[in-house]
Design a protein around this nucleic acid. Structure first.
Lengths: 201, 201, 201, 201
DNA sequence: AATGAATGAGCATTCATTCAT
DNA sequence: AATGAATGAATGCTCATTCAT
């Protein structure tokens, strides 16, 4: 129709991304239909192509948006706090963001497993900032002698995220007994001490 | 084009399942095309419907076949062996089977996250026998005082599988540093002792 | 397998025709499936092709069988009986046979309306003997002065069959109020006298 | 490929309906192929689904269009005109519309005989307005003493339509001697007086 | 910028017929 | 003669993308 001011453009883009997140969450990348996204956004089917190149591009954009939010969530603890506190804080923040877009997060996980690497490297980079934060936490934990030196901080960080993601996966399985809000504590406990008798001071 | 003996029928079914596993592995449930499966199996397109009801049914059958194999892999250790040995044995067996059909396993994981529960409950049941074995291991470990009593054997079993699956997930991510054959040891170490200094005897 | 005596062959053929009549009746020529026919006949799918050339050929054979039966039903009345009696007798016989295979008759009617003439001329010839009988009845009726001379006996015969078939059609429409057994009387009355006041002596 | 104005939409819809009527007429509901309809309409295959839900829905729409036209054809005669005139007028109008879409009418008749009642009740309702008109004609005819009182006006109306349809059927049979334009007179004569000598004043 | 009709490649599934056993 | 597995052409419907308005 006509020019539209910047404000409106941003608003339309946002509505499209929100609608897309819902649809992708519910149906997955392949299952979601472009029409449905547009309609849910209150715009016409063709309009989506004024904002994005393709359905896949929309998915990418939703992931990017999500990554932006995860990256933004950063809280501060005094450096001298115990690892446990730091890890809990990180995992809690992660779960908090995840909870907001839980269904989409699940869909993203799913797509990450198909990984035509061109697209999904991007998905994975969403967690890079998180990894970095955890890595720094583990460095400090090693310096403080809280954690052994057998593994590099990077390996340790990966391992922590692995436990968190494993629990997230478990949480998403039907009939799971793992609640989203229990994940940080469960993850940190297991990660730090394992289940052996006496491994927990 | 004609009557075939039982031997041939079994052989054809197997060829279809193998071809399907490949295609599903490469493209996922939705992405795989029935034609390609038949062609890869060296049979005509329609033939697949003499053996299965639908593409989805083929997927189910591949999962079932896989489950059968996982269920079959059962090794024996003297009951008095340490938990660590038992868990290593279980995880190794799991990884061994997984390695054989690795790409399909990945696809199955993926589909399990979409979970139209009717179909994918089935996928998950593939691991039930494994869960049961681990549960019994943990019972004995608790009796032997090797593992604390804060959690039930069932919870402990789930937790172990969670760590294994988390690592499997990690392994499947692009640029992963986790090799399939390292998973059992990594999982058991982390699961039993965590990463804290001194938590490992 | 092996030779089969004439008795068995005839029996198999009959079973196939009966099963086919049912299936065609229920689903029409296109809708009926060759498998279903064979199965209903208690024979294997391929066997049908030992008896008939094609599905269409089976249909033809069912029609022929039906025609044979209609042709067989011929009863005698004293030539001097009134037209009314003769027509009632003919129509009743027609309805009696029709009733036995009512659903197939309906399907045959249906197919006759699509009429790839090669096949369905045959269907129509099923009624030829009936037409001939009616024609002779009308000749006598004209001689006896019971019926006017404006139309030829052949035209009169066709017209009678038209009324009967129209009622049959009506009978087959959903929610019809016309019962099969009422058709002969209805047809004869209407055919002979119409509905005008006083046209009936 | 782009937005089109209302005018064009209507035009496209009409082209699709016309093309569909032809295809259905020639091949029947099952036999007609969606591609052929679109191609005959000069549109792409998918376009048809912008206007209709399914092939069956197209069929329904063609019937509805036809019904609309039949319902529209209404002529007026002075109420005091003899039944004969009124019936001739109705039947002629019916034949006139039928002639325009004769082949499709035949196909519709055919489908009505298969009658999965959900769809084909609709086909039959196409004639409801016609039935109603005839019913009113017969009421007046009974009041005027032109027609006996043995049957209700509704029964009389049905009977008239039965004769017309019987003749239509006859007309459609191969090698028929009944021309479409002869039907009204034939039907009215037979319906009012039958063929008995002297039943016609 | 927004619209939504048009496009057409893509695909699962059906089923009559063949023919080796 | 009987069997039933194999075949593959046929077809309705979906949906991402384009583009005239």
């Amino acid at each position: 129709m006509a020019r539209v001011d910047e404000r409106t453009r941003i608003e339309h883009r946002k509505r499209l991304l929100d609608a897309a997140a819902s649809e992708f969450a519910a149906k997955g990348l392949d299952g979601a239909r472009v029409d449905d996204i547009s309609i849910a956004a209150g715009l016409a089917k063709g309009t989506i192509y004024n904002y994005f190149d393709s359905k896949r591009d929309v998915f990418r954009a939703v992931v990017a948006e999500w990554a932006r939010r995860i990256g933004g969530e950063r809280r501060t603890l005094p450096p001298e706090a115990p690892v446990r506190e730091h890890l809990l804080a990180v995992a809690s923040a992660d779960m908090r963001v995840t909870a907001e877009i839980e269904e989409f997060a699940r869909a993203a996980f799913r797509e990450a497993l198909t990984a035509p690497p061109d697209l999904f490297a991007e998905i994975l980079r969403a967690w890079d900032p998180l990894d970095a934060v955890v890595e720094r936490i583990m460095e400090r934990a090693q310096s403080a002698g809280e954690v052994g030196l057998e593994r590099t901080p990077r390996e340790l960080a990966k391992l922590f995220m692995t436990v968190v993601n494993g629990l997230l996966l478990e949480h998403w399985l039907p009939e799971s007994a793992v609640a989203l809000e229990d994940i940080p504590e469960l993850a940190v406990d297991l990660y730090l001490h394992g289940v052996s008798a006496g491994s927990r001071s």
